[in-house]
Nucleic acid binder design. Sequence first.
DNA 1: GGTCCACGAGACTGTGCGTA
DNA 2: TACGCACAGTCTCGTGGACC
Length: 475
Amino acid sequence: MSTKLKNGQSRYQSKAKVVTIKKFQLLTLAKATHCFNNAEFENYGDAYLEFPVIIQGDGSPSEIFNLYLLKKLEQTIQYDFKTFASIAHQLVDFQRFLEDEQLDFLKFHKLKQLNAIFQYRTRLIEQTNAGLISANSARGRINAVVNFYRFLVTEDLVDHQRYGIPFKDVYKYIAVDNEFGARRKMAIKSHDLAIHVPAKAPNPETIADDGELSPFSIESQTVILKALLKSSREYQLMFYFALFTGARLQTICTLRIKNLIGRKPDSQGFIRLPVGSGTGIDTKFQKPMTLLIPNWLAQDLKIYIDSPQAQQRRQKSSYGESDENYVFLTKLGTPFYTSKAEQQELIEKIKASDSFGARLKLYEGEAVRSYLKVVLLPEIRLIDPQFPSFKFHDLRASFGMNLLESQLQHLPEGHSAMTAVEYVQARMGHRNISTTLQYLNYKSRLQWRNKIQHEYESSLMKYVNSSVNLAGDLS
DNA sequence: GGTCCACGAGACTGTGCGTA
DNA sequence: TACGCACAGTCTCGTGGACC
């Protein structure tokens, strides 16, 4: 019996699943023969990698769900296998429900409560209330199924003329205040089976910055740095990079050797490194920004790059001994994170090959997360047994907190505290200053709140006023 | 130590549209 | 044309167990 709580196959008896086809190519019949095996086919359109297919509990492919995925593929301009995998996983949940309940989803009833989709919605709500899945997941699944039904109706695959369709498109009205305070209604298109997701109450113990982050105190940072001394040089440098630049894991792992060559420090002792779109270094959503790397860290990285250890890893890697290679590689020579640019190279390579067996393997930081939990955290707990579990991104939050504190400490006479906040906002790449203001508000920095209490509150009010949630005022 | 797999959670972006 | 914001869709991160 599965011990996982949040696992589709533990919530249902059905063995329905999603499998992915490594390389998927549509074919057209060029020459028909009496025997299908002798027929000749021609390639039709592009090849798609890692295309998901829904398999029913009895092991056969689901014709209707897979037809839907194909139709969606036909309408897609930019194919992304992760998007299709996401839709397939949402739909397979519905398939499992249908098999368990032995329901015919193509049969529509006058009484809407008898329709399979209505019963599925009820089940999703029950699972949400029982804490088996989140409201977000329930919302995503019912929306995916509604879209699937829209396809059935559009393509005339069901007898909807007789009983109508099992859901209704509805317009919900929300209240919007403009900058002058005038309130008006705005219509949002939805459907009558939508599952409402209540707005999450902010957790005062964390900072909502790309997830719920918990910055470390200076004491905790010291413990981490001490434990890191026992780690390999690669992991030391990766963790230093996060703590001293605030970069995300994705950015650190996609740094290339060429990015560090020939860069001179500025007057304040920082190497200014552009990252994001067009630089070859990935950022979230490829957002362009400039990282400020302390020169001592940049020098350590250069020494590491020239070390025999780094050279050995490069020799095992696909890029080999080249400046195009990543700064950090695992001991097997694989990247910790496959950059967007390399993903594209791999996709083109597999598409161009005749082989249908080549696998698109992408790395997305699993090794680092695994290392943090399995190796580093136990090492930290040898120093401090009470040390809580943490995420790599908490290092970024700690960087933000350190930076803010240092900016406030060195604030020139007569300068606004908001100057410090705006500086941190730019360095962290926050789109919205309200995210940066959370750092100011964080409980461990109460002494700073007291110092700048008045200014802080007036600044905060401005943002609070602009983001008051008015939904629900209108029915 | 690192990889693989199968998910779940949730943050971010695009969309829709009335009004100044 | 910019702005407001909930919803829907997309995509990244995280988890846990098994395995090499």
